[in-house]
Amino acid sequence: MPTFIFDAVNPNGKMIKGKLEAASEANLVNKLSQEGYVILNIQPIQAKKKHMKLRAKLGDLVLFTRQFSTMINAGVRIKDALKLLSRQEAFTKPFRKVLEEILVSIDGGMSLAEAFDEAGIFDPVLVNLMQAGESGGVLDEALLKLSKFYEDSKKIRDEIRSAMAYPVFVSIFAILILMVISLFILPNLFRAFGNVKPTGIVALLINSNDYMVNHWMNVLIFLTIATVGGYYFMRTPYGVAFKSFTLSLFPPIKKLRKLETASSFSKTLATLISSGVSIMDAVKMAANSTSDHALIKNVPQMVDTLRNGGTLKEAMQNTKYFPQLLVEMVGTGEETGRVDEMLNKVADFYDEEVSVKLKQIVSMVEPAMIGVIGIAVGFLTFSLYQTMFSLESGAGQFGK
């Protein structure tokens, strides 16, 4: 059946967008009208250009999966649970809007997993676990596993952000100092010495100051576009890949990222396997969820090994990418029939290693940043004194 995209007003009077399959436009309009929706616009999906959507925020996913699991476990119907959740102010407005679109998709005959997949903001792990939970009649358990998975991911992310707070603050403070010197101190200083032209880094700061004063609107527009564009770009898959590549250029951070990747891969794989997802699909999704290109490139080789009858341990060992501890723990899990349990244990171990390495990196970054800022300020001070002496000398010769 063809797929249509439409704009409509729901029974609560809110504007929504949706995507549904139907035999024809007339059939879709008829069905939605019976549900109380007022159709404003409808067209085949092929007629609309597809845009890349931003991923759902991790905070929304943690709260949603936990509350959705609790409601399903308490016997609340899926549609009723989604309606309640779509009205909660605890979620961001875009996320609530997506839940409303999912309700429309479910009304149109889609399964829960299909509706979440169509929304385009949820990762394959969530979609596949929902599908496994639906087919096995254990949706609440699948959602609970998702909640634990997202909570662990958020915990690691929050630790990293907390550790980087001080270095970021110092960097911003240093930039503000340079801006104050450039915008307020240097202009007053040079006005005292007349129209003598400075040189070197002082000249660069003076020229930057003149440009910002004379073209402040252009600077403001550029900074706004760069900030907003950068924020949204970093939430796209391309932004995640760019950030991963950039961080991998620094050896200490590269090692930290590898530990974080091993932890994320292990937790995701354990969650998928314990929910009944096939091992080959689980490996693909677990690798893609890490956004680590070095690991993702090894996925075809791992899948080929598994397809040819090899074990998961052999598939991981042949890539020469994974830490030996992880490989051996997987082998032990396969021998005992407890692969998911072993993966969770090794993930916990790597989480602790990430915390230790993160503290070590921060302990090195802090004095390094202070040293760099000290050198920059010292060089700037030297340049200022040198320029002042040159100006005084020039002014003295001019007086003679």
Results as ranks from 00 to 15, higher is better:
Ile5Thr: 13
Asp7Arg: 14
Asn10Lys: 03
Asn12Cys: 08
Gly18Val: 02
Ala22Val: 04
Glu35Leu: 13
Ile39Lys: 00
Asn41Gly: 08
Ile45Leu: 13
His51Thr: 14
Lys53Ile: 07
Ala56Ser: 14
Leu61Asn: 05
Val62Tyr: 01
Ser69Gln: 06
Asn73Arg: 15
Ala74Phe: 10
Gly75Leu: 13
Ala81Thr: 05
Leu82Gly: 09
Ser86Asp: 03
Ser86Cys: 03
Phe95Ser: 09
Val98Asp: 08
Val98Ala: 11
Ser105Cys: 07
Ser105Trp: 08
Asp107His: 14
Leu112Gly: 00
Asp117Thr: 01
Ile121Lys: 03
Met130Arg: 04
Gln131Cys: 02
Ser135Met: 09
Gly136Asp: 04
Gly137Ile: 06
Asp140Phe: 06
Leu143Pro: 03
Leu143Ser: 00
Leu144Asp: 13
Leu144Glu: 13
Tyr150Gln: 07
Glu151Ile: 02
Glu151Ala: 14
Lys155Pro: 01
Arg157Thr: 09
Arg161Asp: 06
Arg161Phe: 09
Met164Arg: 04
Phe169Asp: 06
Val170Thr: 10
Ser182Ala: 14
Phe184Arg: 05
Leu189Asp: 08
Ala192Ile: 14
Ala192Gln: 11
Gly194Trp: 12
Met212Asp: 00
Leu220Asp: 03
Ile221Val: 14
Val228Pro: 00
Tyr231Cys: 03
Arg235Thr: 13
Ala241Asp: 11
Ser248Arg: 15
Leu256Glu: 02
Arg257Asn: 13
Lys258Thr: 05
Glu260Asn: 15
Ser275Glu: 06
Gly276Gln: 03
Ala287Asp: 00
Ala287Asn: 02
Ser289Arg: 11
Ser291Glu: 10
His293Ala: 12
His293Glu: 14
Pro300Thr: 06
Met302Arg: 05
Val303Gly: 07
Thr319Phe: 11
Tyr321Asn: 02
Glu334Met: 07
Gly337Arg: 00
Val339Met: 05
Leu343Ala: 01
Val346Lys: 00
Asp348Cys: 03
Asp351Leu: 06
Glu352Asp: 14
Val356Trp: 04
Val356Glu: 13
Ala368Phe: 10
Ala368Ser: 14
Gly374Asn: 07
Val377Met: 04
Ser383Val: 09
Tyr385Pro: 02
Tyr385Ile: 15
Gly394Thr: 12
Gln397Met: 13
Gln397Val: 12
Gly399His: 11
